[in-house]
Design a protein around this nucleic acid. Structure first.
Lengths: 162, 162
DNA sequence: TTAATTCACGATAAACTCGGTAGACTTATT
DNA sequence: AATAAGTCTACCGAGTTTATCGTGAATTAA
């Protein structure tokens, strides 16, 4: 599950990304449009500003605005900034690598090997997706791809019943 | 991050799966071999028994033993049994589907669409992996596949720095 | 039949995370 | 000066995670 915080953050970025260039919204306005509680959103937008995604102006006519090109912001990067390390095992994270205390030998650890493969393929995918993909008009996108979206919008029809 | 519980559960299944057919281990023995705290492991093995993976015998010479073919137990199935729903959004889970309260229209929800694609590809992968893959001799497996394992054992060399 | 062994099960608890609230402060505009 | 905005630090309640403990129930050996 992605956290509420992540959800709010992505929705906020989408809201701000949909604006005309140069426009800004106050926390209050972002809160209304994204559905996030205002005081909670404060923290989130502040984080996003510190992470370099948003700019802020104070005082009258102030607010937050997107300062990075949506097509240049990968989803992987975003998820890491918002939620912290996303590796399934600490020993698979580069930035925040930690040894597994209970692990004798990383080279032969089967868990590490298998989850490493999973993680690798996951990373590859989310790095290839961007904020732009979240902003895309779904109808237009569907047309461009011959409408595969509808068929894949739901979870796979229950390989294992999740 | 996978939880400690998941880690212990998978290690236990690997331990029991490596045994000759029909052999059993007590909680105590599984605890020693897997590194899981004994009293915690009790609950985990009990869950795995109730989920149909393990059998148990009480009294002298009792213990737990694997009752399912490792090659028939998908990793996806396992992770769901141990950790519960794994969908990134409640509206993407079939078994435990819940509507997102803040969502007006699932059909046009961009978050749902994008995370649906991610989840779909993730599910496909973990459904294709089995307990057998966790039991496989890494050296032999490496030979069989022309040793791609070593190169992919570590996280991708930092697409985004995770 | 009794004692030893082993799993079964519910209660409890410490530590941590998540989602959110509150108050005071700083900066900018009018 | 008044007002409107973002900034910062602290805190809090609920739930989850990671266990531990005590006791009961089944099985078997002596």
């Amino acid at each position: 599950m992605i956290t509420q915080k992540t959800k709010y953050a992505l929705k906020s970025l989408m809201t701000l990304g949909a604006l005309e260039k140069g426009a800004a919204l106050t926390i209050e306005e972002v809160s209304q449009r994204s559905g996030a509680p205002k005081r909670f959103l404060e923290h989130i937008l502040l984080d996003l500003r510190k992470a370099g995604y948003l700019g802020a102006r104070r005082g009258r006519a102030g607010g937050y605005f997107l300062i990075r090109e949506p097509s240049k912001v990968s989803l992987g990067e975003l998820l890491q900034q918002i939620d912290g390390p996303i590796a399934p095992l600490p020993c698979l994270s580069r930035r925040s690598y930690r040894r597994c205390e209970d692990c004798d030998d990383e080279e032969t650890c089967q868990l590490r090997r298998v989850f490493g493969e999973i993680f690798w393929s996951y990373l590859l995918l989310i790095e290839s997706l961007t904020l732009q993909d979240l902003l895309r008009d779904p109808v237009a996108a569907g047309k461009a791809l011959g409408e595969p979206g509808a068929a894949r919008n739901a979870a796979p029809d229950e390989i294992a019943g999740e």
